[in-house]
Design a binder for these strands. Structure first.
Lengths: 150, 150
DNA sequence: TAATTATAGGTGTGTATACACCTATTACAT
DNA sequence: ATGTAATAGGTGTATACACACCTATAATTA
């Protein structure tokens, strides 16, 4: 008889064709590479991205910053703590007492300037490792993953 | 005079050409999508991947499993705890007292079988959202990111 | 065989992630 | 004006992540 068994042979497809496995593994590797190179700056990849977001969105609310960084709001809340403790950002209120704005301090601005060269270095390492054209394609694909959310 | 100012205009390049920002954001989105679809199975994406790894590497040591899943060993150690508590895996020792093998229990095997259809569903959603060909290319790129580590 | 080195793995700490649930404030409708 | 919606944000909890550092056991070598 032909057994319709829900067997486990499909498991062997995971390394080659599972999106979540592949993207998480790649994410870990890229993050480690960047964190290693950013180390002398004192910032981690995510913290750097948050500071950049605070700069380019120009003292945004928590919500706006979270949206801009494609992060969960509550994740961002926790992530802001160490930056605030280090004095790199300051949380300020306005007229609407619900809203809290994230402001880059002078110290935060300095940290950002100091980190940018390491960021460029890390990018060039990835680019060398990967090929500029290849990397451009990957970045475009990753950006389009963000579209799924909408 | 020409000021060589290390200004912050480069910050605006982050969304379009920062590998770590893009891959982390994409990773969060894909993970949320999978976790949402896997939810009825009771497993999260990472836990599913660990169980798959335990199956395909056939009762591996912690180290072998970590390497196979491209994970840090200590991350894996913590991640095994909930699976052990749920009785999906069992940690066993052999002759070499240093080595601990991760074994799939019958309950773990059942959980894996139960989860596979949800995994296929999630893959098809990503594939539809993304286009099969496009996705294949992305997966190949992500797999080649893993090569950086070597 | 005793000292050394290599291997396997766990723990402390701190950050990253996000769901479920909560409060406070503002805007809106009756 | 008052009750209700919508909006902004924080907290509890649990997992994910990984570096630095530790112990235990096995393998190697002097």
């Amino acid at each position: 008889m032909e057994t319709k068994k829900n067997d486990l042979s499909k498991c062997f497809d995971l390394p080659s064709l599972c999106p979540v496995f592949n993207i998480r593994a790649a994410s870990r590797i890229i993050t480690q590479l960047f964190d290693e190179i950013l180390k002398p700056s004192g910032l981690q990849s995510t913290q750097f991205a948050v500071l950049v977001g605070v700069h380019i969105f120009d003292t945004p609310s928590i919500n706006k910053l979270a949206k801009g960084l494609v992060m969960d709001r509550t994740t961002l809340t926790r992530g802001l703590k160490p930056l605030e403790n280090e004095g790199l950002i300051k949380i300020v209120s306005g007229d609407d007492k619900r809203i809290r704005f994230v402001k880059l301090t002078p110290k935060g601005k300095t940290a950002l300037e100091k980190t940018l060269p390491y960021w460029e270095k890390a990018r060039s390492v990835v680019s060398d490792e990967f090929g500029q054209k290849h990397l451009d394609g990957l970045l475009k694909d990753l950006a389009s993953v963000r579209e799924i959310k909408n």
